[in-house]
Nucleic acid binder design. Structure first.
Length: 274
DNA sequence: AAGCCCGCCAACCGCATTCGC
DNA sequence: GGCGAATGCGGTTGGCGGGCT
């Protein structure tokens, strides 16, 4: 920390925030709401630039921030979302309630990357010992935006049971996506994170949740994991308004790429932050 | 007890994008 | 449409604390 910058404002403080500064910021946001970060220093005398203020609020002071260790299911979700989205930390964070992009980025860089490296290494050893022509699949971070050009680059491996399919051959006003399966029922249940259920009406124009065994719960992680390249336009997925999901306790409509379904989600679910 | 090493994470930086005039 | 300011984002730095020698 402490590098000089040509953008640095004279008289602005840097470094760790004090409790008093935090309180000033909290009070200001309570009174005026989020945004207008640049005004805060002028109106409160807080000697912090707007960027610093915003970061402090978003990464530390927001009331909905979840503190503490990343749970196993959260870790799994991060890995899968990273597989899907690459280093789009804000997008990943927007789909993990209570976690910030900075936190996830730090967790990835400090913990998960090493963990995955080790796993890859073990896999390579296994592959090399079983077949002399191992793939040599390498890199620690195959989905960084540098490598894959961002969204649409490195994608999940094709798996099977639950997947979106783009039925755009219909050339309708908007594309429709279905979760396909070999069978259909009128109502299916699945689990989002730990506990909440999803009810999906099996309607031809709606998302159909399905699988070989429809009576089993399906985790949201599975849902994410099984998004296949070519079967879902990621940009459509990212435009999904997940934020609406946390506004109601009852089953609700969720629109994905122009189609909708009724979903029940955890109360603490907070989709797209930004 | 002291020094070193290492991992975690808050906070910084620069660039890109959006907004307001 | 052009320009400057504000905001958002991802990469990186460095302080701090805990573990190890």
């Amino acid at each position: 920390m402490g590098r000089s910058s040509r953008f640095e404002k004279v008289g602005m403080k840097k470094g760790a925030w004090t409790a008093r500064e935090d309180q000033i910021l909290i009070d200001y946001v309570k009174k005026h709401g989020e945004g207008k970060w640049g005004k805060i220093s002028k109106e409160t005398g807080l000697k912090r630039c707007g960027k610093s203020v915003r970061l402090r609020w978003l990464n530390y002071l927001r009331p909905d921030i979840k503190r503490g260790n990343i749970a196993d299911d959260e870790e799994e979700l991060i890995i899968r979302l990273h597989r899907l989205l690459g280093n789009r930390w804000s997008l990943i964070a927007g789909r993990i309630p209570g976690r910030t992009d900075n936190e996830i980025k730090n967790y990835w860089n400090s913990t998960l990357r090493r963990k995955l490296q080790q796993e890859n290494h073990l896999n390579e050893i296994k592959e090399n010992s079983s077949s002399p022509s191992g793939s040599g699949a390498d890199e620690d971070d195959p989905h960084s935006t540098k490598n894959n050009g961002g969204v649409g680059g490195g994608m999940v491996e094709p798996t099977s049971s639950y997947c979106f399919t783009n039925h755009n051959e219909k050339k309708e006003d908007h594309q429709r996506y279905h979760l396909e399966s070999t069978t259909t029922t009128t109502t299916n249940k699945t689990t989002f994170f730990s506990g909440a259920t999803v009810e999906a009406e099996a309607n031809k124009n709606d998302i159909e949740l399905a699988g070989d065994d429809l009576s089993n719960d399906v985790t949201w992680n599975d849902f994410i994991m099984d998004l296949n390249e070519g079967q879902l336009d990621i940009s459509e997925f990212l435009q999904t308004d997940f934020s609406k999901l946390c506004e109601s306790e009852s089953p609700m409509k969720v629109e994905v790429g122009g189609c909708s379904t009724n979903h029940e989600l955890p109360n603490n679910w907070a989709g797209g932050r930004s």
